[in-house]
Nucleic acid binder design. Sequence first.
DNA 1: TCAAGACAAGTGTGATCACAGATCAAAATA
DNA 2: TATTTTGATCTGTGATCACACTTGTCTTGA
Lengths: 250, 250
Amino acid sequence: MQKHPATAFSVKDRPQLLPIERETVQDRVYAELRRALICGLFEPSQVLTIRGLADQMMTSTMPVREALGRLISEKAVEAMPNRSVRVPPVTLERLDDLLRTRILIEGEAVALATLRMTQRELMLVRDVLAEWDEVRSLSQRGDFDREATLNQKFHFQIYRCSGSSVLIPMIESLWLQSGPCTRYAAYAFSQAVASDETRDVAYYHRAMVDALDRRDPVGARGALVADISRPFTFLRERLLAEPAQSEGEQ
Amino acid sequence: MQKHPATAFSVKDRPQLLPIERETVQDRVYAELRRALICGLFEPSQVLTIRGLADQMMTSTMPVREALGRLISEKAVEAMPNRSVRVPPVTLERLDDLLRTRILIEGEAVALATLRMTQRELMLVRDVLAEWDEVRSLSQRGDFDREATLNQKFHFQIYRCSGSSVLIPMIESLWLQSGPCTRYAAYAFSQAVASDETRDVAYYHRAMVDALDRRDPVGARGALVADISRPFTFLRERLLAEPAQSEGEQ
DNA sequence: TCAAGACAAGTGTGATCACAGATCAAAATA
DNA sequence: TATTTTGATCTGTGATCACACTTGTCTTGA
Protein backbone atom coordinates (compact mmCIF):
# COMPACT_ATOMS: atom_id res chain seq x y z
CA MET A 1 0.00 0.00 0.00
CA GLN A 2 3.06 2.31 -0.19
CA LYS A 3 2.12 5.03 -2.60
CA HIS A 4 5.39 6.99 -2.98
CA PRO A 5 8.04 4.97 -4.74
CA ALA A 6 10.31 8.00 -5.28
CA THR A 7 11.30 8.71 -1.69
CA ALA A 8 14.86 8.94 -0.45
CA PHE A 9 14.40 6.02 1.93
CA SER A 10 14.09 2.39 1.06
CA VAL A 11 11.31 0.43 2.68
CA LYS A 12 13.52 -0.92 5.46
CA ASP A 13 15.38 2.31 6.24
CA ARG A 14 12.30 4.46 6.27
CA PRO A 15 11.66 5.86 9.74
CA GLN A 16 8.79 3.92 11.26
CA LEU A 17 5.94 6.21 12.14
CA LEU A 18 3.77 4.84 14.87
CA PRO A 19 0.03 4.94 14.23
CA ILE A 20 -1.33 7.85 16.20
CA GLU A 21 -3.91 6.81 18.70
CA ARG A 22 -7.27 8.41 18.20
CA GLU A 23 -8.69 8.41 21.65
CA THR A 24 -11.93 10.28 21.93
CA VAL A 25 -12.95 12.29 24.96
CA GLN A 26 -15.57 9.70 25.70
CA ASP A 27 -12.94 6.97 25.82
CA ARG A 28 -10.82 8.94 28.24
CA VAL A 29 -13.78 9.69 30.47
CA TYR A 30 -14.75 6.03 30.41
CA ALA A 31 -11.25 4.89 31.27
CA GLU A 32 -10.97 7.40 34.08
CA LEU A 33 -14.29 6.37 35.58
CA ARG A 34 -13.24 2.75 35.38
CA ARG A 35 -10.00 3.52 37.13
CA ALA A 36 -11.79 5.44 39.83
CA LEU A 37 -14.29 2.65 40.33
CA ILE A 38 -11.69 -0.10 40.53
CA CYS A 39 -9.48 1.88 42.87
CA GLY A 40 -12.51 2.56 45.02
CA LEU A 41 -12.50 6.33 44.74
CA PHE A 42 -16.29 6.27 44.96
CA GLU A 43 -18.18 5.10 48.00
CA PRO A 44 -20.76 2.35 47.73
CA SER A 45 -24.27 3.84 47.33
CA GLN A 46 -22.78 7.15 46.22
CA VAL A 47 -24.91 8.99 43.67
CA LEU A 48 -23.14 10.16 40.52
CA THR A 49 -24.48 13.05 38.48
CA ILE A 50 -23.55 13.67 34.87
CA ARG A 51 -22.91 17.35 35.35
CA GLY A 52 -20.99 16.82 38.56
CA LEU A 53 -18.63 14.35 36.94
CA ALA A 54 -18.32 16.53 33.85
CA ASP A 55 -17.30 19.48 36.01
CA GLN A 56 -14.72 17.42 37.91
CA MET A 57 -13.20 16.17 34.65
CA MET A 58 -13.45 19.56 32.96
CA THR A 59 -15.43 18.29 30.00
CA SER A 60 -18.98 18.67 28.80
CA THR A 61 -21.82 16.39 29.76
CA MET A 62 -21.98 14.44 26.52
CA PRO A 63 -18.94 12.18 26.91
CA VAL A 64 -19.80 11.57 30.56
CA ARG A 65 -23.33 10.56 29.82
CA GLU A 66 -22.24 8.03 27.22
CA ALA A 67 -19.52 6.63 29.45
CA LEU A 68 -22.07 6.26 32.25
CA GLY A 69 -24.35 4.39 29.88
CA ARG A 70 -21.59 1.93 29.17
CA LEU A 71 -20.88 1.48 32.85
CA ILE A 72 -24.55 0.87 33.53
CA SER A 73 -24.72 -1.95 31.03
CA GLU A 74 -21.66 -3.50 32.67
CA LYS A 75 -23.35 -3.31 36.07
CA ALA A 76 -20.44 -1.18 37.28
CA VAL A 77 -22.98 1.42 38.35
CA GLU A 78 -26.72 1.00 38.57
CA ALA A 79 -29.57 3.13 37.26
CA MET A 80 -32.10 4.04 39.89
CA PRO A 81 -35.79 4.33 38.97
CA ASN A 82 -35.34 8.10 39.39
CA ARG A 83 -33.06 8.01 36.37
CA SER A 84 -30.12 8.82 38.59
CA VAL A 85 -27.13 6.52 38.79
CA ARG A 86 -25.25 5.36 41.84
CA VAL A 87 -22.45 2.96 42.60
CA PRO A 88 -24.09 -0.26 43.80
CA PRO A 89 -24.45 -0.72 47.56
CA VAL A 90 -22.54 -3.56 49.16
CA THR A 91 -24.67 -6.30 50.66
CA LEU A 92 -23.81 -9.69 52.04
CA GLU A 93 -25.43 -11.55 49.16
CA ARG A 94 -23.66 -9.44 46.59
CA LEU A 95 -20.35 -9.99 48.34
CA ASP A 96 -20.71 -13.75 48.32
CA ASP A 97 -21.98 -13.71 44.77
CA LEU A 98 -19.05 -11.66 43.54
CA LEU A 99 -16.48 -13.76 45.34
CA ARG A 100 -17.90 -17.05 44.09
CA THR A 101 -17.95 -15.82 40.51
CA ARG A 102 -14.48 -14.36 40.74
CA ILE A 103 -13.12 -17.64 42.04
CA LEU A 104 -14.81 -19.46 39.19
CA ILE A 105 -13.68 -17.22 36.37
CA GLU A 106 -10.32 -15.95 37.55
CA GLY A 107 -9.49 -19.46 38.67
CA GLU A 108 -10.15 -20.71 35.16
CA ALA A 109 -8.07 -17.90 33.67
CA VAL A 110 -5.14 -18.70 35.93
CA ALA A 111 -5.38 -22.39 35.16
CA LEU A 112 -5.34 -21.63 31.45
CA ALA A 113 -2.45 -19.23 31.88
CA THR A 114 -0.45 -21.86 33.74
CA LEU A 115 -0.43 -24.06 30.69
CA ARG A 116 0.25 -21.37 28.11
CA MET A 117 2.60 -18.98 29.84
CA THR A 118 6.12 -18.56 28.45
CA GLN A 119 9.26 -17.92 30.50
CA ARG A 120 9.40 -14.41 29.18
CA GLU A 121 5.84 -13.70 30.34
CA LEU A 122 6.58 -15.18 33.73
CA MET A 123 9.52 -12.84 34.06
CA LEU A 124 7.26 -9.89 33.42
CA VAL A 125 5.07 -11.05 36.27
CA ARG A 126 8.09 -11.30 38.55
CA ASP A 127 9.05 -7.78 37.57
CA VAL A 128 5.73 -6.49 38.81
CA LEU A 129 6.27 -8.18 42.17
CA ALA A 130 9.76 -6.73 42.38
CA GLU A 131 8.41 -3.26 41.68
CA TRP A 132 5.81 -3.79 44.34
CA ASP A 133 8.42 -4.80 46.89
CA GLU A 134 10.33 -1.67 46.07
CA VAL A 135 7.30 0.52 46.57
CA ARG A 136 6.52 -1.17 49.85
CA SER A 137 10.05 -0.77 51.16
CA LEU A 138 10.26 2.88 50.16
CA SER A 139 7.12 4.02 51.93
CA GLN A 140 6.23 2.16 55.10
CA ARG A 141 2.77 3.60 54.94
CA GLY A 142 2.23 2.56 51.33
CA ASP A 143 -0.22 4.59 49.34
CA PHE A 144 -3.17 2.44 48.45
CA ASP A 145 -3.68 3.73 44.93
CA ARG A 146 -0.19 2.72 43.90
CA GLU A 147 -0.47 -0.70 45.48
CA ALA A 148 -3.93 -1.27 44.06
CA THR A 149 -2.62 -0.43 40.61
CA LEU A 150 0.27 -2.86 41.01
CA ASN A 151 -2.04 -5.55 42.28
CA GLN A 152 -4.22 -5.06 39.23
CA LYS A 153 -1.18 -5.13 36.97
CA PHE A 154 0.05 -8.35 38.56
CA HIS A 155 -3.22 -10.18 38.16
CA PHE A 156 -3.99 -9.07 34.63
CA GLN A 157 -0.47 -9.80 33.46
CA ILE A 158 -1.27 -13.39 34.33
CA TYR A 159 -4.82 -13.40 33.04
CA ARG A 160 -3.69 -12.05 29.71
CA CYS A 161 -1.60 -15.18 29.26
CA SER A 162 -4.77 -17.26 29.27
CA GLY A 163 -5.20 -16.08 25.71
CA SER A 164 -8.95 -15.81 26.19
CA SER A 165 -10.45 -12.62 24.81
CA VAL A 166 -13.77 -13.61 26.32
CA LEU A 167 -12.65 -14.24 29.89
CA ILE A 168 -10.60 -11.09 30.28
CA PRO A 169 -13.39 -8.56 29.74
CA MET A 170 -15.46 -10.55 32.18
CA ILE A 171 -12.76 -10.35 34.80
CA GLU A 172 -12.49 -6.62 34.18
CA SER A 173 -16.20 -6.35 34.74
CA LEU A 174 -15.89 -8.31 37.97
CA TRP A 175 -13.09 -6.07 39.22
CA LEU A 176 -15.22 -3.10 38.32
CA GLN A 177 -18.08 -4.45 40.38
CA SER A 178 -16.02 -5.50 43.37
CA GLY A 179 -13.82 -2.41 43.30
CA PRO A 180 -15.93 -0.27 45.61
CA CYS A 181 -16.21 -3.18 48.06
CA THR A 182 -12.61 -4.27 48.24
CA ARG A 183 -11.32 -0.74 48.51
CA TYR A 184 -13.45 -0.40 51.56
CA ALA A 185 -11.96 -3.64 52.80
CA ALA A 186 -8.40 -2.62 51.99
CA TYR A 187 -8.82 0.62 53.86
CA ALA A 188 -10.29 -1.01 56.95
CA PHE A 189 -7.67 -3.70 56.57
CA SER A 190 -4.80 -1.29 56.80
CA GLN A 191 -6.16 0.27 59.93
CA ALA A 192 -7.09 -2.90 61.70
CA VAL A 193 -4.24 -5.30 61.25
CA ALA A 194 -0.54 -5.20 61.83
CA SER A 195 2.12 -5.39 59.17
CA ASP A 196 2.54 -9.16 59.47
CA GLU A 197 -0.91 -9.56 57.98
CA THR A 198 -0.01 -7.52 54.94
CA ARG A 199 2.90 -9.84 54.44
CA ASP A 200 0.38 -12.47 53.48
CA VAL A 201 -0.44 -10.60 50.31
CA ALA A 202 3.10 -11.03 49.11
CA TYR A 203 3.08 -14.62 50.32
CA TYR A 204 0.13 -15.65 48.20
CA HIS A 205 1.51 -13.83 45.21
CA ARG A 206 4.83 -15.61 45.51
CA ALA A 207 3.05 -18.93 45.92
CA MET A 208 1.17 -18.17 42.74
CA VAL A 209 4.32 -17.34 40.80
CA ASP A 210 5.98 -20.49 42.08
CA ALA A 211 3.03 -22.60 40.99
CA LEU A 212 3.11 -20.92 37.58
CA ASP A 213 6.80 -21.68 37.36
CA ARG A 214 6.34 -25.40 37.91
CA ARG A 215 3.21 -25.42 35.73
CA ASP A 216 0.90 -26.45 38.51
CA PRO A 217 -2.64 -25.30 37.67
CA VAL A 218 -4.15 -26.55 40.92
CA GLY A 219 -1.56 -24.82 43.05
CA ALA A 220 -1.88 -21.59 41.13
CA ARG A 221 -5.63 -21.61 41.42
CA GLY A 222 -5.40 -22.33 45.13
CA ALA A 223 -3.08 -19.42 45.74
CA LEU A 224 -5.34 -17.16 43.71
CA VAL A 225 -8.41 -18.22 45.64
CA ALA A 226 -6.67 -17.53 48.93
CA ASP A 227 -5.52 -14.17 47.63
CA ILE A 228 -8.81 -12.80 46.41
CA SER A 229 -10.84 -14.37 49.20
CA ARG A 230 -9.08 -12.52 51.97
CA PRO A 231 -10.58 -9.02 51.57
CA PHE A 232 -14.00 -10.51 50.94
CA THR A 233 -14.07 -12.64 54.07
CA PHE A 234 -12.71 -9.72 56.04
CA LEU A 235 -15.42 -7.41 54.77
CA ARG A 236 -17.98 -10.14 55.29
CA GLU A 237 -17.21 -10.33 59.00
CA ARG A 238 -17.31 -6.58 59.33
CA LEU A 239 -20.68 -6.46 57.63
CA LEU A 240 -22.01 -9.18 59.88
CA ALA A 241 -20.74 -7.35 62.95
CA GLU A 242 -22.69 -4.17 62.22
CA PRO A 243 -25.64 -4.91 59.97
CA ALA A 244 -26.99 -1.36 60.34
CA GLN A 245 -24.38 -0.07 57.92
CA SER A 246 -25.44 2.30 55.18
CA GLU A 247 -26.00 -0.54 52.75
CA GLY A 248 -28.31 1.36 50.48
CA GLU A 249 -31.46 3.14 51.44
CA GLN A 250 -33.60 2.33 48.45
CA MET B 1 -46.38 6.54 54.25
CA GLN B 2 -50.12 6.75 53.50
CA LYS B 3 -50.93 10.41 53.68
CA HIS B 4 -54.71 10.50 53.24
CA PRO B 5 -56.48 8.96 56.21
CA ALA B 6 -59.87 10.36 55.18
CA THR B 7 -60.46 8.37 52.00
CA ALA B 8 -63.50 6.27 51.33
CA PHE B 9 -61.42 3.10 51.03
CA SER B 10 -59.67 1.27 53.80
CA VAL B 11 -56.05 0.40 53.27
CA LYS B 12 -56.79 -3.10 52.10
CA ASP B 13 -59.70 -2.26 49.77
CA ARG B 14 -57.99 0.65 48.07
CA PRO B 15 -57.45 -0.04 44.38
CA GLN B 16 -53.79 -0.84 43.84
CA LEU B 17 -52.17 1.44 41.28
CA LEU B 18 -49.24 -0.14 39.51
CA PRO B 19 -46.07 1.93 39.24
CA ILE B 20 -45.84 3.22 35.69
CA GLU B 21 -42.72 2.12 33.87
CA ARG B 22 -40.58 4.88 32.52
CA GLU B 23 -38.77 3.36 29.59
CA THR B 24 -36.70 5.80 27.62
CA VAL B 25 -36.19 5.64 23.88
CA GLN B 26 -32.60 4.65 24.47
CA ASP B 27 -33.71 1.67 26.53
CA ARG B 28 -36.04 0.49 23.81
CA VAL B 29 -33.38 0.87 21.15
CA TYR B 30 -30.91 -1.01 23.33
CA ALA B 31 -33.35 -3.84 23.97
CA GLU B 32 -34.22 -4.10 20.30
CA LEU B 33 -30.58 -4.23 19.26
CA ARG B 34 -29.94 -6.91 21.87
CA ARG B 35 -32.83 -8.95 20.59
CA ALA B 36 -31.64 -8.62 17.03
CA LEU B 37 -28.11 -9.61 17.99
CA ILE B 38 -29.15 -12.66 20.00
CA CYS B 39 -31.56 -13.83 17.34
CA GLY B 40 -28.81 -13.40 14.77
CA LEU B 41 -30.54 -10.79 12.62
CA PHE B 42 -27.15 -9.28 11.85
CA GLU B 43 -24.43 -11.09 9.95
CA PRO B 44 -20.98 -11.55 11.45
CA SER B 45 -18.62 -8.78 10.24
CA GLN B 46 -21.58 -6.60 9.27
CA VAL B 47 -20.93 -2.92 9.89
CA LEU B 48 -23.59 -0.95 11.69
CA THR B 49 -24.01 2.78 11.20
CA ILE B 50 -25.72 5.01 13.69
CA ARG B 51 -27.85 6.79 11.13
CA GLY B 52 -28.74 3.58 9.35
CA LEU B 53 -30.02 1.96 12.51
CA ALA B 54 -31.78 5.16 13.54
CA ASP B 55 -33.61 5.25 10.23
CA GLN B 56 -34.66 1.61 10.51
CA MET B 57 -35.98 2.17 14.02
CA MET B 58 -37.54 5.50 13.14
CA THR B 59 -35.74 7.42 15.86
CA SER B 60 -33.00 10.00 15.94
CA THR B 61 -29.33 9.20 16.16
CA MET B 62 -28.91 10.04 19.81
CA PRO B 63 -30.53 7.00 21.44
CA VAL B 64 -28.89 4.70 18.90
CA ARG B 65 -25.45 6.06 19.51
CA GLU B 66 -25.74 5.60 23.26
CA ALA B 67 -27.15 2.12 22.89
CA LEU B 68 -24.27 1.23 20.58
CA GLY B 69 -21.83 2.52 23.19
CA ARG B 70 -23.31 0.17 25.72
CA LEU B 71 -23.10 -2.74 23.31
CA ILE B 72 -19.47 -1.94 22.57
CA SER B 73 -18.51 -2.12 26.23
CA GLU B 74 -20.23 -5.50 26.44
CA LYS B 75 -18.24 -6.75 23.45
CA ALA B 76 -21.53 -7.43 21.69
CA VAL B 77 -20.26 -5.30 18.82
CA GLU B 78 -16.74 -4.05 18.29
CA ALA B 79 -15.40 -0.60 17.49
CA MET B 80 -13.13 -0.54 14.49
CA PRO B 81 -10.16 1.83 14.39
CA ASN B 82 -12.17 3.81 11.81
CA ARG B 83 -14.63 4.62 14.58
CA SER B 84 -17.20 2.49 12.85
CA VAL B 85 -18.78 -0.46 14.62
CA ARG B 86 -19.39 -3.94 13.32
CA VAL B 87 -20.66 -7.20 14.72
CA PRO B 88 -17.59 -9.29 15.54
CA PRO B 89 -16.43 -11.78 12.90
CA VAL B 90 -16.55 -15.45 13.75
CA THR B 91 -13.21 -17.18 13.95
CA LEU B 92 -12.20 -20.59 15.17
CA GLU B 93 -10.45 -19.25 18.25
CA ARG B 94 -13.39 -17.10 19.19
CA LEU B 95 -15.75 -20.02 18.76
CA ASP B 96 -13.75 -22.26 21.07
CA ASP B 97 -13.26 -19.43 23.52
CA LEU B 98 -16.96 -18.67 23.69
CA LEU B 99 -17.97 -22.29 24.07
CA ARG B 100 -15.46 -22.98 26.83
CA THR B 101 -16.58 -19.93 28.77
CA ARG B 102 -20.26 -20.68 28.28
CA ILE B 103 -19.74 -24.21 29.57
CA LEU B 104 -17.93 -22.83 32.59
CA ILE B 105 -20.43 -20.15 33.53
CA GLU B 106 -23.73 -21.58 32.42
CA GLY B 107 -22.68 -24.90 33.93
CA GLU B 108 -22.15 -23.21 37.24
CA ALA B 109 -25.49 -21.43 36.99
CA VAL B 110 -27.31 -24.66 36.27
CA ALA B 111 -25.57 -26.43 39.12
CA LEU B 112 -26.59 -23.63 41.47
CA ALA B 113 -30.13 -23.67 40.14
CA THR B 114 -30.36 -27.42 40.71
CA LEU B 115 -29.92 -26.92 44.43
CA ARG B 116 -32.17 -23.89 44.82
CA MET B 117 -35.02 -24.52 42.41
CA THR B 118 -38.51 -24.99 43.80
CA GLN B 119 -41.17 -27.26 42.39
CA ARG B 120 -43.12 -24.24 41.22
CA GLU B 121 -40.14 -22.93 39.28
CA LEU B 122 -39.52 -26.33 37.76
CA MET B 123 -43.10 -26.38 36.55
CA LEU B 124 -42.56 -23.06 34.79
CA VAL B 125 -39.63 -24.62 32.96
CA ARG B 126 -41.77 -27.56 31.91
CA ASP B 127 -44.37 -25.13 30.62
CA VAL B 128 -41.80 -23.61 28.28
CA LEU B 129 -40.95 -27.02 26.90
CA ALA B 130 -44.63 -27.80 26.41
CA GLU B 131 -45.12 -24.53 24.53
CA TRP B 132 -42.12 -25.37 22.42
CA ASP B 133 -43.54 -28.80 21.55
CA GLU B 134 -46.75 -27.13 20.53
CA VAL B 135 -44.98 -24.69 18.25
CA ARG B 136 -42.97 -27.46 16.69
CA SER B 137 -46.01 -29.63 16.05
CA LEU B 138 -48.01 -26.78 14.54
CA SER B 139 -45.48 -25.73 11.97
CA GLN B 140 -43.30 -28.48 10.54
CA ARG B 141 -40.94 -25.89 9.21
CA GLY B 142 -40.67 -24.05 12.52
CA ASP B 143 -39.74 -20.41 12.33
CA PHE B 144 -36.34 -19.90 13.86
CA ASP B 145 -37.09 -16.67 15.63
CA ARG B 146 -39.87 -18.23 17.62
CA GLU B 147 -37.82 -21.27 18.53
CA ALA B 148 -34.79 -19.18 19.38
CA THR B 149 -36.93 -17.08 21.70
CA LEU B 150 -38.29 -20.18 23.40
CA ASN B 151 -34.82 -21.65 23.73
CA GLN B 152 -33.68 -18.46 25.39
CA LYS B 153 -36.71 -18.44 27.66
CA PHE B 154 -36.05 -22.05 28.67
CA HIS B 155 -32.43 -21.49 29.57
CA PHE B 156 -32.87 -18.24 31.43
CA GLN B 157 -35.84 -19.55 33.37
CA ILE B 158 -33.37 -22.03 34.82
CA TYR B 159 -30.47 -19.62 35.20
CA ARG B 160 -32.64 -17.19 37.10
CA CYS B 161 -33.14 -19.85 39.75
CA SER B 162 -29.44 -19.74 40.49
CA GLY B 163 -30.18 -16.57 42.41
CA SER B 164 -26.95 -15.01 41.22
CA SER B 165 -27.31 -11.44 40.02
CA VAL B 166 -23.69 -11.52 38.93
CA LEU B 167 -23.78 -14.66 36.79
CA ILE B 168 -26.93 -13.82 34.87
CA PRO B 169 -25.70 -10.60 33.23
CA MET B 170 -22.57 -12.46 32.25
CA ILE B 171 -24.60 -15.18 30.61
CA GLU B 172 -26.62 -12.55 28.79
CA SER B 173 -23.38 -11.05 27.56
CA LEU B 174 -22.22 -14.47 26.38
CA TRP B 175 -25.46 -15.07 24.50
CA LEU B 176 -25.08 -11.65 22.96
CA GLN B 177 -21.61 -12.51 21.75
CA SER B 178 -22.44 -15.98 20.48
CA GLY B 179 -25.76 -14.93 18.96
CA PRO B 180 -24.43 -14.07 15.51
CA CYS B 181 -22.47 -17.34 15.41
CA THR B 182 -25.12 -19.75 16.58
CA ARG B 183 -27.77 -18.25 14.36
CA TYR B 184 -25.53 -19.01 11.48
CA ALA B 185 -25.18 -22.52 12.84
CA ALA B 186 -28.89 -22.93 13.41
CA TYR B 187 -29.65 -21.86 9.89
CA ALA B 188 -27.10 -24.19 8.33
CA PHE B 189 -28.25 -26.83 10.77
CA SER B 190 -31.82 -26.73 9.59
CA GLN B 191 -30.76 -27.10 6.00
CA ALA B 192 -28.21 -29.81 6.51
CA VAL B 193 -29.69 -32.36 8.86
CA ALA B 194 -32.88 -34.34 8.98
CA SER B 195 -35.56 -34.00 11.59
CA ASP B 196 -34.16 -36.80 13.75
CA GLU B 197 -31.24 -34.54 14.57
CA THR B 198 -33.48 -31.75 15.75
CA ARG B 199 -35.09 -34.24 18.05
CA ASP B 200 -31.86 -34.17 20.00
CA VAL B 201 -32.55 -30.64 21.09
CA ALA B 202 -35.67 -31.74 22.85
CA TYR B 203 -33.83 -34.78 24.17
CA TYR B 204 -31.16 -32.77 25.94
CA HIS B 205 -33.71 -30.36 27.31
CA ARG B 206 -35.76 -33.17 28.76
CA ALA B 207 -32.64 -34.75 30.23
CA MET B 208 -31.88 -31.43 31.84
CA VAL B 209 -35.36 -31.11 33.34
CA ASP B 210 -35.16 -34.67 34.63
CA ALA B 211 -31.82 -33.99 36.27
CA LEU B 212 -33.24 -30.83 37.81
CA ASP B 213 -36.15 -32.84 39.10
CA ARG B 214 -33.97 -35.35 40.94
CA ARG B 215 -31.62 -32.57 42.06
CA ASP B 216 -28.64 -33.94 40.20
CA PRO B 217 -26.21 -31.06 39.49
CA VAL B 218 -23.77 -33.22 37.55
CA GLY B 219 -26.44 -34.62 35.31
CA ALA B 220 -27.96 -31.21 34.68
CA ARG B 221 -24.61 -29.72 33.84
CA GLY B 222 -23.85 -32.60 31.51
CA ALA B 223 -27.09 -32.17 29.61
CA LEU B 224 -26.49 -28.45 29.35
CA VAL B 225 -22.97 -28.93 28.03
CA ALA B 226 -24.24 -31.34 25.39
CA ASP B 227 -27.00 -28.92 24.45
CA ILE B 228 -24.93 -25.80 23.96
CA SER B 229 -21.96 -27.63 22.48
CA ARG B 230 -23.85 -28.96 19.49
CA PRO B 231 -24.18 -25.83 17.36
CA PHE B 232 -20.62 -24.83 18.18
CA THR B 233 -19.07 -28.11 17.12
CA PHE B 234 -21.24 -28.10 14.02
CA LEU B 235 -20.11 -24.61 13.09
CA ARG B 236 -16.55 -25.53 13.95
CA GLU B 237 -16.50 -28.31 11.38
CA ARG B 238 -18.04 -26.07 8.76
CA LEU B 239 -15.43 -23.43 9.43
CA LEU B 240 -12.64 -25.96 9.17
CA ALA B 241 -14.05 -27.25 5.89
CA GLU B 242 -13.90 -23.87 4.18
CA PRO B 243 -11.32 -21.64 5.88
CA ALA B 244 -11.61 -19.00 3.13
CA GLN B 245 -14.87 -17.80 4.61
CA SER B 246 -15.41 -14.07 5.01
CA GLU B 247 -14.14 -14.18 8.56
CA GLY B 248 -13.37 -10.51 8.83
CA GLU B 249 -11.21 -8.49 6.50
CA GLN B 250 -9.53 -6.18 8.93
C1' DT C 1 -46.39 24.06 65.41
C1' DC C 2 -46.84 21.39 61.53
C1' DA C 3 -48.28 19.92 57.08
C1' DA C 4 -49.46 20.92 52.32
C1' DG C 5 -48.87 23.48 48.29
C1' DA C 6 -45.84 26.51 45.35
C1' DC C 7 -41.74 27.92 43.57
C1' DA C 8 -36.92 27.34 42.14
C1' DA C 9 -32.79 24.97 41.20
C1' DG C 10 -30.94 20.80 39.49
C1' DT C 11 -30.91 16.74 36.40
C1' DG C 12 -31.57 13.36 32.61
C1' DT C 13 -33.20 12.88 27.82
C1' DG C 14 -33.38 13.66 23.16
C1' DA C 15 -32.98 16.79 19.00
C1' DT C 16 -30.14 19.61 16.18
C1' DC C 17 -25.96 21.52 14.48
C1' DA C 18 -20.98 22.20 13.37
C1' DC C 19 -16.82 20.00 12.49
C1' DA C 20 -13.29 16.51 11.33
C1' DG C 21 -12.18 12.34 9.31
C1' DA C 22 -13.35 8.41 6.04
C1' DT C 23 -14.94 6.64 1.78
C1' DC C 24 -15.89 6.43 -2.84
C1' DA C 25 -16.45 7.96 -7.52
C1' DA C 26 -15.41 11.01 -11.16
C1' DA C 27 -12.11 13.69 -13.51
C1' DA C 28 -7.58 15.09 -14.76
C1' DT C 29 -2.89 13.91 -15.76
C1' DA C 30 1.11 11.02 -17.08
C1' DT D 1 -5.00 3.06 -20.24
C1' DA D 2 -3.48 3.39 -15.64
C1' DT D 3 -2.69 6.29 -11.77
C1' DT D 4 -3.35 10.11 -9.00
C1' DT D 5 -5.93 13.90 -7.45
C1' DT D 6 -9.95 16.20 -6.35
C1' DG D 7 -14.42 16.68 -4.88
C1' DA D 8 -18.80 15.30 -2.81
C1' DT D 9 -21.10 12.53 0.42
C1' DC D 10 -21.32 9.89 4.50
C1' DT D 11 -20.30 9.11 9.33
C1' DG D 12 -18.89 9.70 14.16
C1' DT D 13 -18.03 13.17 17.80
C1' DG D 14 -19.02 16.68 20.81
C1' DA D 15 -21.49 21.06 22.02
C1' DT D 16 -25.71 23.40 22.89
C1' DC D 17 -30.50 23.81 23.65
C1' DA D 18 -35.38 22.70 24.87
C1' DC D 19 -38.27 19.93 27.58
C1' DA D 20 -39.87 17.02 31.38
C1' DC D 21 -39.17 15.32 35.74
C1' DT D 22 -37.14 15.32 40.43
C1' DT D 23 -35.78 17.40 44.66
C1' DG D 24 -35.24 20.69 48.12
C1' DT D 25 -36.83 24.98 50.15
C1' DC D 26 -39.97 28.47 51.25
C1' DT D 27 -44.32 30.24 52.07
C1' DT D 28 -49.00 29.89 53.31
C1' DG D 29 -52.66 28.06 55.69
C1' DA D 30 -55.05 25.58 59.44
